[in-house]
Amino acid sequence: MKNEEYRNVWVFSEVKEVALELLSLGRQLADSLGVELGALALGNGAEAQASEYIAYGADRVYVGQHPALSRFSVEPYTDLIAGLAGQHRPEVLLIGATKRGKELAPRVATRLGTGCAADCISLTIEGESRALQVERVVYSGNALAMLTYRNRPQVATIPPGIFQRREREENRPGEIILAELPIREPRTRVREVREKEKGSVNIEAAEVVVSCGRGLNHPEDIQLIRELAELLGAEVGCSRPIAADLQWLSEDHWVGLSRHKVRPKLYIACGISGQIQHIAGIRDARIVLAINQDDAAPIFQSADYGIVGDLYQVIPALKEAYQRIVKRES
């Protein structure tokens, strides 16, 4: 099959909110290619979702309602998505990079004999070849790789929260198609689902660290830091005074040259002035966000992003913004 025989952009995520973000991205790509935007809605309530997807930019939605699709399972989902893509030949297939999306996309791509790029943060169409060009972070955040595709469909997974959903458009025209395809039962069986337990501190291995310093007024206010950390899946860190002088946190949390040197993707310094010992401990953080009341605090010199303000107000605002933009009940 020649590349030119593939047309249209498709999106799928088992999480509705992520699907809406992908629709926004997919719409842009479809428009620049001058093709239709398709979406896949699988499982329980798929039909209701389908009309939502149209309101958010899809021209066509394929609905799958087989009992084996009622909860996500990679094998039947692969059967259906790869089956549909084989029939209808989209040129681009975007899948939300949730953990489930990430186990699905490579299986689908492999079955279709094509390539897949994971966790793409930038996607553009190269004019003449109509090829998708993507960028993704590699080497633990040290570098950015630019990739393109030889085959079709071009499969990419997109991390949640990177693209904003479009405005909802009532009465947007679109077609809903019921997909009937052979689906096999999954060979894995779910025994139990439960909440995640909290692990012990390993701050040096943490991907995100929310850290606090002298800007905190009372030991019980650590809770504020913990809440933000929990929301972001982060470990709690602190500067020397909190661990050594005040002993509000154990030394496991102490970030600085003489204790733990951290190398997270993101370091959020809340109410930390930014003494050199502390800065040396966060040298390897990829991005530093600093929150401090003092406009002249040295921490801002060592930060990528800075918010001047009272951490007691900034942290709740950050939590609210994060919840609104990213976190959602699935």
């Binding site: 950015l144 630019m146 030889r150 530093v288």
Partner: peptide, 21 residues
């Protein structure tokens, strides 16, 4: 033989951006 073509790997600049929000 690979469907994905790696065009370039560029470094992230390590200097801090110092952007005030």
């Amino acid at each position: 033989g690979s469907p994905i073509v790696l065009k370039r790997v560029a470094a992230f600049r390590m200097e801090r951006k110092n952007i005030r929000l």
